[in-house]
Amino acid sequence: MADETDVLVEIQADDARPIYVQIMDEIRRAIVVGGLDGDDPLPSVRELASSLQVNPNTVSRAYRELERDGLVYVRRGRGTFVSPEADREADRRRLAREVAERALRDARRHSLTAEELVASIRAVSDGGGGGDGDRAQRRANQPTEGREES
């Protein structure tokens, strides 16, 4: 059986982000990690809506916003493609920021300060704990090192 779409997009109904934002983030992630390259086509709205069982308007909205952000371009009648000049570095930083924001929200929920969170991320990634959470936490740490955006 052929793969349903060319991009792995996963969304969660109970995620705090609206579905169109989750789709945008997933496409961004695919671009950042190299799953999608310049001029690669995105799945059609219909394909993606059908495979995710989401409202096609939601997919269209995600694609429109990605186009506005300059990450994709539309060729009428042919579909949506990844912009070759998409700034992967900037997007990588943005992705890191979003991961950090999520971690921070979680920390706040547990009554931890940003400093406590950063300190424990350092401790864990400097050879402590290891394990599955290790890599995600290292990424979450990035925005505090590269401060250009804040």
Binding site: V45, R46, A49, S50, S51, L52, Q53, V54, N55, P56, N57, V59
Partner: peptide, 13 residues
């Protein structure tokens, strides 16, 4: 899942 996917596909077309 199949039915919901079909409905989504239907709405797109």
């Amino acid at each position: 899942k199949k039915v919901l996917g079909l409905v989504a596909d239907h709405l797109a077309s």
